[in-house]
Amino acid sequence: MKELVNNIIAYAVQRDVNAAQLCKLSGIPSTYLKNPNSAPLTHQQLHHLWKNAAHLANDPLFSLHMGESLRASALGIVGHIIQSSATVGEALTHAAALVHLFTDQASMSLRQDKNSTHITLLPATKQQSSNDLGSLMELLLVITIHELDGLMLKKIVPQSVFLPYKVSDPEEYERVLRCRPVKSSGKYGLTIPGPLWDEPILTANYELQELFLKKIKRLAKPAARTSTLQTRIYNYLLANAYLGVSSLDDIAANFNVSPRSLQRQLKKEGFTFQQIADEVKRSLAEQYISSGNFELKDISWMLGYNEPSAFSRAFKRWTGKAPGHYQEAG
């Protein structure tokens, strides 16, 4: 529970929300975050925390966007699961058993048939209303999709996503969940097509994820009220770059502004989005090449280039050197 609360508040701070004000409005004691022995929040306090965070961030889809921002955390979970799993089915089974470490309000059930894998999220107790857990369940759905991304090292597109209510912004839900959700009475879940269950987990995944996590850990903790928009976008792109650098539209949606408004704010700071994205790609490319663990074609793919030649041209533009010469010089 505490990890979940910490993540909610941390993401709210990234969205320019004052943590002290958020806690006060939600009835959370000022000592809660600093005291490791603090009593767990009540379900009502957690509900108010979600509601107030969305209100103060001016983002009705706060939980959905938070799920996107937690890719780094999801990768950390995946890294531990991979060490004891040989297939995606085993990894999902272990993940379902570990949900309680993240929250005590929900559980996960799995069902696999010949053509697809079905993942359902349920309230932990019958006394809880599934609708009251909407923010939490949406967060878990997004994290689950990203967790599968980490296991497979490719973007997973659900065949269907189920929510027990009609969403207010179906286009944005479709962007984040990669599938437009349908209303299903009392049900949160998703269906992944294909024979996913017996898919082997590539042994290189864990090494790759460790590389990302080491990079992320070296980032300064974001101070939303003192950092520039450029810095916040750079940190977000870097922390979420394990399957390519996010687009301008994706970043604008996560920051709850229009692409044009985001570009306008960046222009005031003397930057463009493309400049920031290129700097992130350069930083990651230099680390991948210096590690000596990846072939050029793999680095190209991880950074979102369809052809190694396109990546080589971009890298030479950034550094003045071809990737091979850069590695030799290092």
Rank of each mutant, 00 (worst) to 15 (best):
V176A: 07
L229T: 11
S283A: 15
S247R: 05
Y288N: 01
A322H: 09
Q263W: 07
G189Y: 09
G330V: 09
H55N: 05
S26D: 04
A54E: 10
K214Y: 07
V257N: 04
R111A: 12
A57C: 04
A72P: 05
H80A: 10
K2R: 15
M1F: 08
A322N: 12
P222Q: 00
K221L: 05
I156S: 07
Y326V: 03
I9N: 00
D149E: 14
I81A: 08
T191H: 14
Y326L: 03
V99Y: 03
L237M: 02
T203P: 10
C23V: 09
F273S: 06
L110V: 03
T191S: 10
H100P: 02
I216Y: 01
G304H: 07
R71D: 06
Q21P: 01
N293I: 09
P123A: 14
Q112S: 13
A91L: 05
P164C: 11
N35Q: 15
L229C: 15
L101R: 11
Y11G: 02
I77C: 14
Q21I: 06
D104K: 02
Y206N: 15
P36W: 12
G304F: 05
R317E: 08
V99L: 06
D104V: 05
E279D: 13
K166Q: 14
E210H: 14
L56K: 11
L208V: 04
W197E: 09
S290M: 10
T120Q: 08
A74W: 10
L163I: 11
K215P: 01
G194Y: 13
T42L: 13
M1K: 03
Q159M: 12
Y234N: 00
R15W: 01
Y234G: 01
R218M: 08
P36T: 07
Y288S: 01
Y165V: 10
K281R: 13
K154L: 03
L163A: 05
R225Q: 07
V182M: 13
A252E: 08
C23R: 12
W301P: 04
L61I: 06
Q14C: 02
A223R: 00
F255H: 13
D59H: 07
Q327V: 05
L61A: 07
E286W: 03
G189R: 02
